[in-house]
């Protein structure tokens, strides 16, 4: 195709129209158009078509919740970065200990030192949103740094699963209110046996479940509803590792560790070999109360 021919001009009308051509080639095209009515009509058509595309093409605006989601995730990523820096800055033995604890968070859930719940206040089993008094468990410096100042990865994972199911980016794989059906469904999907938790509060209704993971472990995710508010329960094998959290409570005769961040609460407790974690936007003490109800 000869430079300056009709074919050449039509081939490059697009870049010419977009203002992308070198001035010399642009001038060559404009000279041709001035003398060629057919190519001039084609040039007008290309401009018209591009104008129609700009006028009509849908350019959806980002929903407001997306900015909120991104903002939330960026701050979470920033906290995680600070944890890594703080751990490395600690140096030597302290760094090694901190890393080991971080690994423990990811693989076994939040960790607390032995005796960390020794001074927890004994509180009656709560009803509704009150009745549980928190006390801060003593913890080794490495744990406190990671879990209490900058957020621990286990809790972050719990909140992430809850958030994704609530937003339906992780759909339920089984939708039923039948606890036995849910327990049976998980039987060949997770490497442990458990019974779908039942709450003594009759307003808590099972919705269904799905397979998920926490760290590198398969976990059972169960969705509940409490008068229109989403309650997530995650069950994972604890493999003997300790369980801990930002605050410790006595609830229903069991030790429950709990915390709250970004308007979402979590509560974690051990039952035999299994670790149960509850996540909801309910107040922290109400969630602890629910954890104490599970049978």
């Amino acid at each position: 195709m000869e430079t300056g021919s009709c074919g050449w001009v039509r081939r490059f009308l697009g870049p010419w129209k977009d203002g992308e051509l070198d001035p010399a080639d642009a001038a060559r095209i404009e000279g041709h158009i001035a003398a060629c009515p057919a190519c001039a009509a084609q040039a007008r058509f290309e401009k018209w078509f591009a104008g129609e595309v700009r006028r009509l093409a849908d350019r959806p605006r980002a929903p407001e919740r997306l900015a909120q989601r991104v903002s939330f995730e960026l701050r979470r990523a920033q906290r995680a970065r600070r944890v890594r820096r703080a751990v490395w800055a600690a140096g030597g033995v302290a760094a090694a200990a901190g890393l080991a604890l971080l690994v423990a968070f990811v693989t076994r859930g939040p960790v607390s030192g032995s005796g960390s719940v020794a001074d927890r206040s004994a509180a009656a089993q709560p009803s509704g949103a009150g009745g549980v008094a928190p006390s801060a468990p003593p913890a080794p410096p490495g744990f406190r740094l990671a879990a209490q100042q900058d957020g621990d990865p286990f809790a972050a994972e719990l909140l992430d699963r809850h958030d994704r199911v609530v937003r339906r980016t992780l759909p339920l794989e089984l939708a039923t209110a039948d606890g036995n059906a849910v327990s049976n469904w998980f039987e060949d999907k997770v490497p442990f046996r458990f019974r779908a938790p039942r709450f003594s509060d009759p307003r808590v209704r099972l919705r269904g479940g799905r397979l998920t993971h926490l760290g590198d472990r398969d976990a059972a995710y169960l969705a509940y509803d409490l008068q229109g508010r989403a309650l997530s329960v995650l069950v994972v094998r604890g493999d003997g590792g300790p369980v801990g959290g930002e605050r410790a409570y006595d609830a229903g005769g069991r030790t429950v560790f709990a915390g709250r961040r970004e308007a979402v609460s979590y509560a974690v407790f051990r039952d035999g070999d299994l670790v149960y974690a509850l996540v909801s936007d309910l107040p922290e003490t109400a969630l602890v109360g629910l954890a104490g109800q599970i049978r």
Binding site: M1, G7, W8, R11, P15, G19, L21, D22, P23, D25
Partner: peptide, 24 residues
């Protein structure tokens, strides 16, 4: 009329084949 088959090649890509056009 055939006009869509020729690959456009920008001179800055060092294109040796097809049509060469210089971009600004």
């Amino acid at each position: 009329e055939a006009e869509g088959e020729v690959e456009g090649t920008a001179a800055e890509d060092g294109g040796a084949e097809g049509e060469v056009v210089r971009l600004r």
